[in-house]
Structures are given as structure tokens and as C-alpha cells.
Design a protein around this nucleic acid. Structure first.
Lengths: 290, 290
DNA sequence: ACTGTTTACGGAGACCGTAAGTATC
DNA sequence: GATACTTACGGTCTCCGTAAACAGT
């Protein structure tokens, strides 16, 4: 078993196509086909059903492990390249809803100590944070999501990443002013089970959200846009309470049940560094050396 | 980066010698040297200091990651081979001090349901359990060790293994009858800081044990032998209280501080199976299919 | 018929072993 | 000077690309 073959399998499973995987990996279809065939020969069982391309149970399992393995390879690469860099640079990924004020404050404190440091902040979705950290595309990610209280987001590969909780805020449902439930002091999500739903896709992690989709689908993570859509009656949205309060034509009703919060976390590569507890600390450590 | 190179580096780091690594891997020294050189070229920095052979910081880090990666590769291999086996066999590794009675009872219950199942039990040390599980050399391991209460042994690679606590028993220090502390109702380990120590090496995990070694070193895990040595005044030993009670010429004094227990756990590959809570359940699940 | 995967085949190159070179104890 | 790692070099075999065969939509 070699990494090249695992990469091939994982890519095919993810993309659902030999051709697409080959394109992504910079091989010909033929090569990818041979790599997968070699893997199947080695493990002695079929890993993919063809036409349509779909993993067998064994193939799915192997692809999952392969993903973890390749993620770790990315991580160690970026760790090693970091080791020889001088490090007068710090790159931060930040989700738009994730404590921009706290980040700004922390950066000011950091820059006071180290004026020569060059800092890059980039807005991203929480989904790509893990991969961007692993490949070394960024140093620190500030992500957010909806989860149960005290429950970390991103259960991805413990040991590779260090995730530290920053804040947890209550949730509210944004409703149009004329919605029948708009006057209530609180509500349970089950009351909205059949309502047209229009969450920020980046926020809605694995937490069980109502399955019903709005006729208007929103893609992106701009809160203002979503609130305007809600005000116009296209659907309802689940948002951190402080944010959803500020909008005209929209009423924010706190969510009582299930117990969910809007949680923000700092995510960094664990590396061999000491554990991190605050945002400033995370930034400072990743900005080594002096 | 390919797995072959990672294997080479990890083996060299572990064995501290190119020659030994080559022997272990079935290559010539030259080949191993070239593999490591290729890795160093690829990451652009030295990974090993030669003569003496010792990893650089980067090399050590890479070797650690490589170990995790190769462990996962072993795991997925054994998972896949298990998938096509009929499974009329169950192999259990058990540490001698780890609830042999409970294991026997659980096996009896299992065999009542499935008389045709062939069961192999093998006595091992806790140290090799992880590797034997990963390579598929065994299906279930019942291990023991000394740890803080409610604290799992073996922090190895979460996500790959499922560890379930079975029992926790108080600890006692086995002392010769004529020892000055033999009459006490309890004692703290710090009182024995300078005493000649002779623990079961398999038991003494990372928990900070007194560094002082007895003049008589014992290797193995036979309790009777150790107790005889203690009775003869060659040293003292830390053992689960129920065990150390039964011996002539030896007094068992409970340990009050630090809070430590003798803990036993079931260890299996996590695979895609549901989590396990009892020993019988673990055995039954690993013995699939009917 | 066309899109997409497999198989056949050939060449370039990776990779390992032998053996000579070199440094350290 | 001996041991142990590195470098040089050549043969083999892997591995990928081209191209033809093949299957499913």
C-alpha cells in the first residue's frame, strides 16, 4: 500500500468519477484506474462499483482511513515547512460571524508587541478551515457553528488540531414581523418543523436542523442578505441572537429547545506546542519566532 | 512522500541504526539510506544526525506522525481482511492481572450462544496490545495498568481504538513483614521515595513511579515471583490490593496518596462498530458474524 | 452513439542491490 | 583500523501515458 494509491481511491470516492479524480491529481484516467486496480488486487476485494462509481463497504472504509492518513501527511508537511521559516508572517482565517471584534482586539495587542509582523486575515467558511490549516494555507482559524453547549465543533481527527472554545451565545430564530409566532417570548424548533427554512449553510453543521427547505435557497454567509430575505417572508433563519436583533422587518425570538448555542472556536495545528486557551495566546504562539 | 520512506525513517528512528532498520524491513542498508535521503531532499531539511544516528527535531516530529500513519495503515488492513473472513474465530489477548475471572465468565456466556466458535486466549503485556490489535494479530485485548481514577490507560490515537473501562481496584504496596511501615493502616507513596522499588514493569505505565530502582530487577509479570522477592526483602512492589493480600511473609498496605487505581480495560479496534460497554458485548461483536 | 472505464503495450524512470568511497569511533 | 553510513552505477521492474477495446446510458 502506498500513499499514491490511497490518494487515488480517496479522490475517486470523493468526486465519484475516475475522470474527475485523474484531472484533480494530474494523471490520466488510465493511471487512476490502474492505481485503484492495484489496491483492489492488494486487499483482495472490490473497492469500487463502477458505472455508477460508488464505493463498496470496504472501499468506503478504506477511503475514510485514507482521508485521515492524507490529512496527517498534509499536517506534517506544513509543520516541517513552518520549522524552517523565519515566521514574520501570520495568516488568520475567520468566519464572518465569529467574533470579529475579539479578533481585531487580539490582533491589536499582538501588533503592539511585534510591530514588524505581517498579518493576513481572510474570511472563509468553517468547512474549509480544517483543510487550509492542514495544508499550511493558514496558521489560525476562528470558526463558528451551532452546537450543544460546551460541545466542541469539528470532531475532526483529535490529536491533529487543537480547538479552544471562545464564546457561546444563545440562538434566535429570525422571523418576519407578521409571522404568527413573532410575538412569542421564546419558541422550540419543533414548532417550526414545517416552516420554510433558510439557514446560513456554513453555520448548519451536523446539528439536526429541520429538513424542510425554503423555496428560496441561500448560499453564502452574509447575514444582511439573509435577514432581508427573511423580512420579505421567504423563510426563517437560525442565527446567534445578538446578530439577528439588528434588522428591520425581522423579529428575533430566542430558541428554548433543543439546547443549542452559537459557538466560536480557535482552531490551530496542534504541532508540538503547548495547549492554547485564549485567542491572543493562539495568535502569539503561531507567530513564532520572535 | 510515500509510505515506504516513512516506514524507513520511523524504523531508523526507533532502532537508532540504518543497518538494524534495513534488516527489519528486508532491505539493504544502502536502500534505507537512499530512502531517508529522498525524504530529506523532499522536505528540504536534515531529518537524522548520523554517527550517532539521532533524529533532528524535524525528524522526530516526522517520525511521530509516520508512526501514527503506519499504525492506521495496519488498522485498515486488518479491518479489510476481517470483512471477508467468515469469522468463526475469536482471539483475545489478556494481561495476567486483568480480571481473568471476568474473562472466563464472559467467555462461558459467549460459548453458550455460539458453541462452534473457536476462541484463543493469549497472555500478553499491555504494551504490545495496541500493535497486536492494529496488525490484526488479535481481536480483543484486556489490559491493565496503574492510573488515576476514571482516567483511561493508553492515550494512543483516539479514534482508532475503543477503550472501555471494566474495573478499578485500590492499590496497595507490598512490604516485607518486618518493614518499618508494615504496621500502618495506609501510606503515601512519597514515604517510599527512597525505598528500593520493584514494580511489575508491565504495570508501571507513564504514571510517575518512584525513580529509585531496586538492586534486584524483575522482568516479567508473574505476581507470585514478585511477592516472594518482596518477602525476602529485595524491594517493595505496587500491586492491586486484592492480589497482594494473598501472600505469606508480605504485608499489603493501602496507598492513600497519590490517588491511583489498578484499572482494567477492554481494547478493540473501533472499526465501524457501535461502541462497546461490557466485556461480553465486546467479545460478541468481535466474533461476528453468527 | 457517446461518455467513461478497462486492458494492452511500450518507454522512461524509479528503486534496489552490489560495490567502492568516506567518515567517525 | 573497523564499523557504519554514503555515493556510484547498473539492471530490473514498476508505473504512467497512448491507444484500442469495452460497457453502460
Amino acid at each position: 500500500v502506498e500513499l499514491r494509491d490511497l490518494r487515488a481511491l480517496a479522490t475517486v470516492v470523493r468526486s465519484g468519477s475516475f475522470t474527475a479524480a485523474a484531472l484533480e491529481l494530474g494523471y490520466t484516467q488510465s493511471a487512476v484506474s490502474q492505481q485503484v486496480a492495484a489496491l483492489e488486487r492488494e486487499v483482495g476485494q472490490r473497492l469500487l462499483e463502477r458505472r455508477p462509481v460508488r464505493p463498496t463497504p470496504a472501499g468506503l472504509r478504506l477511503a475514510e482511513h485514507a482521508g485521515r492518513i492524507l490529512l496527517r501527511v498534509d499536517v506534517v508537511r506544513s509543520e516541517l515547512t513552518r520549522m524552517k521559516d523565519t515566521g514574520q508572517e501570520l495568516r488568520v482565517d475567520a468566519c464572518p460571524l465569529a467574533v470579529p471584534d475579539a479578533l481585531a482586539t487580539a490582533l491589536r495587542e499582538l501588533r503592539r508587541d511585534r510591530p514588524s509582523l505581517h498579518v493576513t486575515v481572510r474570511s472563509t467558511g468553517a468547512g474549509s478551515a480544517v483543510n487550509r490549516l492542514a495544508t499550511g494555507a493558514t496558521d489560525v482559524a476562528v470558526i463558528d457553528g451551532i452546537t450543544a453547549p460546551e460541545t466542541p465543533l469539528a470532531p475532526t481527527e483529535p490529536g491533529l488540531f487543537s480547538a479552544t472554545g471562545l464564546t457561546e451565545e444563545p440562538l434566535a430564530v429570525a422571523l418576519p414581523e407578521d409571522h404568527p409566532l413573532a410575538g412569542r417570548p421564546w419558541l422550540d424548533l419543533s414548532m417550526l418543523a414545517d416552516a420554510p427554512w433558510m439557514a446560513l449553510p456554513e453555520l448548519a453543521t451536523e446539528s439536526a436542523m429541520p429538513a424542510a427547505r425554503s423555496a428560496v435557497t441561500y448560499e453564502g454567509n452574509d447575514v444582511a442578505t439573509v435577514l432581508h430575505l427573511v423580512a420579505a417572508g421567504h423563510g426563517t433563519a437560525l442565527l446567534p441572537a445578538p446578530v439577528s436583533l439588528r434588522a428591520r422587518g425581522v423579529v428575533a425570538v430566542p430558541v428554548r429547545h433543543p439546547p443549542l448555542v452559537h459557538r466560536t472556536e480557535v482552531l490551530t495545528l496542534r504541532s508540538a506546542d503547548p495547549p492554547v486557551t485564549t485567542l491572543v495566546e493562539a495568535l502569539r504562539i503561531r507567530a513564532r519566532p520572535m
